Amino acid sequence: EPEARKIVEKLINNGLSPEDVKRWAEKNNNPEVKKAAEEYQKR
């Protein structure tokens, strides 16, 4: 999901860690963003 990846990169560029992004995604019920954050961590 390229859109989710863009969101993850934007949040990380704004100073969030991938863990923060995953928590944000869970709080906002956004499994695509959570998955993208996990993939981002593996890179």
Score class of each variant (00 low, 15 high):
1 E>G: 11
1 E>F: 12
1 E>D: 12
1 E>I: 13
1 E>W: 14
1 E>P: 12
1 E>T: 13
1 E>M: 14
1 E>N: 13
1 E>L: 13
2 P>G: 14
2 P>M: 15
2 P>Q: 15
2 P>R: 15
2 P>E: 15
3 E>R: 10
3 E>S: 12
3 E>F: 07
3 E>K: 08
3 E>D: 14
3 E>P: 08
3 E>T: 12
3 E>G: 09
3 E>C: 14
3 E>Q: 10
3 E>L: 10
3 E>M: 10
4 A>E: 02
4 A>M: 04
4 A>Q: 02
4 A>G: 04
4 A>C: 05
4 A>K: 01
4 A>D: 02
4 A>N: 03
4 A>L: 05
4 A>T: 05
5 R>K: 11
5 R>G: 06
5 R>F: 13
5 R>A: 12
5 R>M: 15
5 R>N: 09
5 R>H: 12
5 R>C: 13
5 R>S: 10
5 R>E: 08
5 R>Q: 11
5 R>P: 05
5 R>L: 13
5 R>I: 12
6 K>V: 11
6 K>M: 13
6 K>L: 13
6 K>I: 11
6 K>F: 09
6 K>Y: 11
6 K>P: 03
6 K>N: 09
6 K>R: 14
6 K>C: 14
6 K>A: 14
7 I>Q: 05
7 I>C: 13
7 I>N: 01
7 I>A: 03
7 I>E: 02
7 I>M: 09
7 I>L: 12
7 I>W: 09
7 I>P: 01
8 V>F: 14
8 V>M: 10
8 V>K: 01
8 V>E: 01
8 V>Y: 07
8 V>L: 13
8 V>I: 06
8 V>D: 00
8 V>N: 01
8 V>A: 05
8 V>P: 00
9 E>Y: 09
9 E>R: 12
9 E>G: 04
9 E>Q: 12
9 E>A: 10
9 E>D: 06
9 E>M: 12
9 E>L: 12
9 E>C: 15
9 E>T: 07
10 K>T: 13
10 K>V: 11
10 K>H: 14
10 K>I: 14
10 K>W: 15
10 K>S: 13
10 K>Q: 14
11 L>T: 02
11 L>H: 03
11 L>P: 00
11 L>Y: 05
11 L>I: 02
12 I>R: 03
12 I>W: 04
12 I>H: 03
12 I>F: 07
12 I>P: 01
12 I>C: 06
12 I>V: 07
12 I>Q: 02
12 I>S: 02
13 N>Q: 14
13 N>V: 07
13 N>R: 14
13 N>P: 02
13 N>I: 09
13 N>C: 12
13 N>Y: 10
13 N>E: 13
13 N>W: 09
13 N>T: 10
13 N>K: 14
14 N>M: 15
14 N>E: 14
14 N>C: 14
14 N>I: 13
14 N>Q: 15
14 N>W: 14
14 N>H: 12
14 N>L: 15
14 N>D: 14
15 G>N: 03
15 G>W: 04
15 G>Y: 02
15 G>S: 03
15 G>P: 01
15 G>M: 04
15 G>V: 03
15 G>H: 04
15 G>Q: 04
15 G>E: 05
16 L>P: 00
16 L>I: 05
16 L>K: 04
16 L>N: 04
16 L>S: 04
16 L>W: 15
16 L>T: 03
16 L>H: 06
16 L>A: 07
17 S>K: 05
17 S>D: 07
17 S>G: 05
17 S>I: 02
17 S>F: 03
17 S>V: 02
17 S>N: 06
17 S>M: 04
18 P>E: 04
18 P>A: 13
18 P>T: 08
18 P>W: 14
18 P>S: 08
18 P>L: 15
18 P>Q: 04
18 P>Y: 14
18 P>H: 06
18 P>C: 09
18 P>G: 03
18 P>K: 03
18 P>V: 15
19 E>C: 08
19 E>V: 05
19 E>P: 03
19 E>S: 06
19 E>R: 05
19 E>T: 06
19 E>K: 04
19 E>Q: 07
19 E>F: 05
19 E>I: 06
19 E>M: 07
19 E>N: 06
19 E>D: 12
20 D>G: 06
20 D>V: 04
20 D>W: 09
20 D>I: 03
20 D>K: 03
20 D>C: 10
20 D>H: 05
20 D>M: 09
20 D>T: 04
20 D>Q: 12
20 D>Y: 05
20 D>L: 05
20 D>E: 13
21 V>N: 01
21 V>T: 01
21 V>I: 15
21 V>Q: 02
21 V>K: 01
21 V>W: 03
21 V>D: 00
21 V>Y: 02
22 K>D: 02
22 K>Q: 10
22 K>C: 10
22 K>P: 00
22 K>W: 11
22 K>M: 15
22 K>S: 06
22 K>L: 14
23 R>P: 00
23 R>G: 04
23 R>Y: 08
23 R>A: 10
23 R>M: 09
23 R>K: 11
23 R>L: 12
23 R>E: 09
23 R>N: 10
23 R>W: 07
23 R>F: 07
23 R>Q: 09
24 W>F: 02
24 W>H: 00
24 W>V: 00
24 W>M: 02
24 W>D: 00
24 W>E: 00
24 W>T: 00
25 A>N: 00
25 A>S: 03
25 A>D: 00
25 A>Y: 01
25 A>R: 01
25 A>W: 03
25 A>E: 00
25 A>G: 03
26 E>V: 08
26 E>M: 08
26 E>I: 09
26 E>G: 03
26 E>Y: 04
26 E>C: 09
26 E>S: 04
26 E>F: 04
26 E>H: 05
26 E>R: 02
26 E>K: 04
27 K>F: 10
27 K>M: 13
27 K>N: 10
27 K>T: 09
27 K>V: 11
27 K>G: 05
27 K>W: 10
27 K>E: 14
27 K>D: 12
28 N>F: 09
28 N>W: 11
28 N>V: 08
28 N>Q: 08
28 N>R: 06
28 N>P: 01
28 N>M: 12
28 N>I: 09
28 N>G: 03
28 N>K: 04
28 N>A: 07
28 N>L: 06
29 N>T: 04
29 N>V: 04
29 N>Q: 08
29 N>E: 07
29 N>I: 04
29 N>L: 06
30 N>L: 15
30 N>D: 07
30 N>R: 15
30 N>E: 12
30 N>F: 15
30 N>P: 01
30 N>H: 13
30 N>C: 14
31 P>Y: 11
31 P>W: 12
31 P>R: 06
31 P>A: 10
31 P>G: 06
31 P>L: 11
31 P>V: 09
31 P>E: 11
32 E>M: 13
32 E>S: 11
32 E>N: 08
32 E>R: 07
32 E>A: 14
32 E>W: 12
32 E>Q: 12
32 E>Y: 11
32 E>P: 05
33 V>T: 02
33 V>M: 06
33 V>L: 08
33 V>Y: 03
33 V>A: 04
33 V>P: 00
33 V>W: 03
33 V>F: 04
33 V>K: 00
33 V>Q: 01
34 K>I: 12
34 K>G: 09
34 K>E: 06
34 K>C: 11
34 K>M: 14
34 K>A: 14
34 K>S: 08
34 K>V: 13
34 K>H: 11
34 K>Y: 15
34 K>N: 05
34 K>Q: 09
34 K>P: 01
35 K>R: 12
35 K>L: 10
35 K>I: 08
35 K>T: 07
35 K>S: 07
35 K>M: 08
35 K>H: 07
35 K>P: 01
36 A>I: 13
36 A>Y: 10
36 A>R: 03
36 A>H: 04
36 A>T: 04
36 A>W: 12
36 A>D: 01
36 A>G: 02
37 A>Y: 05
37 A>M: 10
37 A>V: 13
37 A>P: 00
37 A>D: 00
37 A>K: 00
37 A>I: 12
37 A>G: 02
37 A>R: 02
37 A>F: 05
37 A>N: 01
37 A>L: 13
37 A>Q: 01
38 E>W: 06
38 E>D: 08
38 E>T: 06
38 E>G: 04
38 E>F: 05
38 E>I: 11
39 E>V: 06
39 E>T: 05
39 E>I: 07
39 E>Q: 08
39 E>R: 06
39 E>K: 05
40 Y>L: 06
40 Y>P: 00
40 Y>N: 01
40 Y>M: 06
40 Y>S: 01
41 Q>N: 07
41 Q>C: 12
41 Q>H: 07
41 Q>I: 15
41 Q>K: 10
41 Q>L: 13
41 Q>R: 08
41 Q>G: 07
41 Q>E: 12
41 Q>F: 12
41 Q>D: 06
41 Q>P: 03
41 Q>Y: 11
42 K>R: 13
42 K>C: 11
42 K>N: 10
42 K>E: 08
42 K>L: 11
42 K>D: 07
42 K>A: 13
42 K>M: 12
42 K>Y: 10
42 K>F: 09
43 R>G: 07
43 R>T: 10
43 R>D: 09
43 R>P: 05
43 R>Q: 11
43 R>V: 10
